[in-house]
Write a protein that binds this DNA or RNA. Sequence first.
DNA 1: CTGTTAGCGCCTTCAC
DNA 2: GTGAAGGCGCTAACAG
Lengths: 339, 339
Amino acid sequence: MATIYDVAKLAKVSPMTVSRVINQKGAISESTKLKVEKAIEELNYIPNISARSLISKSTKIISLLITDISNPFFTKVARGAEDKAMQLGYQVIFSNSDEDVEKESRYIQMLLESRVDGVLMAPSGDHSKKNVQKLIQNRIPFVILDREIEGLPSDIVLGNSHEGTRKLMDHLIIQGHKKIALINGPSYISTARERKQAYMESLQFAGIQIDESLLFETDYKQQTENNITDKLLELPSHQKPTAIFAANNFIAANMMKKLTERGIDVPNDVAFVCFDDFDSFSNLHSFLTVAAQPAYDLGYMGVQMLVDKIEGNSNLDNRRIVLPPEIKIRQSSTRYKNE
Amino acid sequence: MATIYDVAKLAKVSPMTVSRVINQKGAISESTKLKVEKAIEELNYIPNISARSLISKSTKIISLLITDISNPFFTKVARGAEDKAMQLGYQVIFSNSDEDVEKESRYIQMLLESRVDGVLMAPSGDHSKKNVQKLIQNRIPFVILDREIEGLPSDIVLGNSHEGTRKLMDHLIIQGHKKIALINGPSYISTARERKQAYMESLQFAGIQIDESLLFETDYKQQTENNITDKLLELPSHQKPTAIFAANNFIAANMMKKLTERGIDVPNDVAFVCFDDFDSFSNLHSFLTVAAQPAYDLGYMGVQMLVDKIEGNSNLDNRRIVLPPEIKIRQSSTRYKNE
DNA sequence: CTGTTAGCGCCTTCAC
DNA sequence: GTGAAGGCGCTAACAG
């Protein structure tokens, strides 16, 4: 592969001049510029980013570290991130932590070795703190995505869990639901904590007694099977929920499947709402009442914020972008209205 | 950030010795090895891949160039690719061409500048040839994914469009369908060509006359709206299809939506089958009869093949892995059987 | 406006 | 077993 030396030789100028043409720096006469461009063309010269990085300390690569690209939420985040990155001249390396801190840790190591310019990261949970601290220690700019890490303030872009939960809950409560089960994510993930808190708040505000037996905790992963549905069904009828609140889309999908298997009809036997929307061509998409997070925008704005930081356009610390969810009222929760 | 010089100084050895310890090359006494490792630890030394790349000509980064990560098919491909890459010590840069050659071309340029070790690429179509030739010209190892480029033999990993189509068609024909509409992708994409050919073949084999008015061409993109459904509905009743074959999941989803809007019932008014499966929590997933491509495996094996090539483990050219689709017979095409 | 020198961090080659 | 010199491809800093 041709280097600037080859180009310089062919164009009969110094390598430095070639460099200047490539980077459009300094003043160059039109004639030499043309000569150089011709030589570049002829040799099919392509600059070597590695060499440039050695000097500039910049790779023009950012890392998108998420838990699972298969989660439609993160798929959209990824798409938004890539679009914005491309627009700003960055490339995106992506990694899936699978909600596993150790895996996350290995990726962080690789990222550091690659000298990525920055990291946009959805932490696997509060225990990701040590991984993030490694970024801080190495002065890698980063923006946290979707989930806060307890006791670690930082630049962050996330959806408003509190608002989304309150609105979904109010929607249920207004319809007369009092026994609402919460199937939540793990308490070491901030979104789960916030959703639980808002859930409690909604009930208290409405003067509804909280029933601990309606609170469940599982995880946000797609694969996770749980028997919460069975447990709900086993409750004595005066305790059985009339509505279910699932804390994310995977939980919702799994529970909906189980409910169908058990012959429970939504919304006639039980109302159902959840956080996160589904693929536009999923039937759950047009059926479930959800608090849809602006996933694409989270990725898009996350990269925006990150690049601002990388390029020093912003000297603010701990910026916080909280995007409101969009509540989409659909069939799964509208039994009362329909009848 | 610490360099090998810093480590060398602290460990009181030469930089070369440090390098040897890091790369486990040559013979080093246990004692100096320990000294060096301690210094590395203490300084939190992290090797600089850019510097290494300059010499080794290897970045340990591969590129995954697909059309759209939002397409569940490619989401799974991406997941498979990343898993395998991680396992082999590579990182993955991903890009979305949106089926646009020019965008693809810009990405190729960026990839070349980054000196990625190889490219796994789903071409936007036959016109991607010029982009792929740029890879060849620059001797970047690559593996083509999902779609062949006319007149450009290469290493390739793809699903068996012919087999999938034949099986879906036979399934329809056996049930007595004779008027089967084909809603195909663009003819400049190999999978569309193959699916059409197999469609024709199936009909001919069954002695069914081909009706050109049942053949449609649109594109594979999610956003594309088409009025094919309307056209089908406007056909005189003796020509109206009793079954619809959609050539990919996006086409299927769009058409299903339109059919629902028009009050057409699947499968009672018309049977429906398509290529590509849906998200496991999509309701179309448990409803539509599909030829599911092993998307995860395509990505996984694609990376496998690519890394083989990069690392020179294989001197074979134009290797071809064709993975069979899995036919999933579901409600959308089983009217006859159910009644 | 253009060229020279030096060095980014690492590794190959050759000494010792 | 260890070290010194040189260079990968590029650009910052200085000269002219």
